[in-house]
């Protein structure tokens, strides 16, 4: 199971690949809506993370996500 730091790195790497720009400055406190990621691109990032980690994130986990840390926590919980 990946820890929070690994998951944050994975998020940054996948987000960079998906959106063709750097996300090096992202921290767990980064607010998702302030990252300038389109809603479809965000789902693309989630799908790539699910595929990479072999987990399934249900739709209900994806509502009310505010920060990147929130997303990482949900993924980590589903890995457990």
């Amino acid at each position: 199971m990946a820890d929070q730091t690994d998951l944050l790195s994975l998020f940054k790497s996948i987000a960079s690949h998906v959106d063709k720009r750097s996300f090096d400055d992202v921290t767990p406190a980064s607010v998702i809506t302030e990252l300038g990621i389109d809603s479809l691109s965000m789902m693309q990032i989630v799908g790539e993370m699910e595929t990479e980690l072999g987990v399934m994130i249900p739709d209900e986990d994806l509502v009310d996500l505010r920060t990147v840390g929130d997303l990482v926590s949900k993924i980590q919980a589903r890995q457990a």
Binding site: L40, S41, Q44, G47, T51, M56
Partner: peptide, 13 residues
């Protein structure tokens, strides 16, 4: 190769 979750949300548009 990687399963349906890897399909891009931009596939349809």
């Amino acid at each position: 190769e990687r399963g349906p979750r890897s399909v891009s949300p931009y596939f349809i548009p």
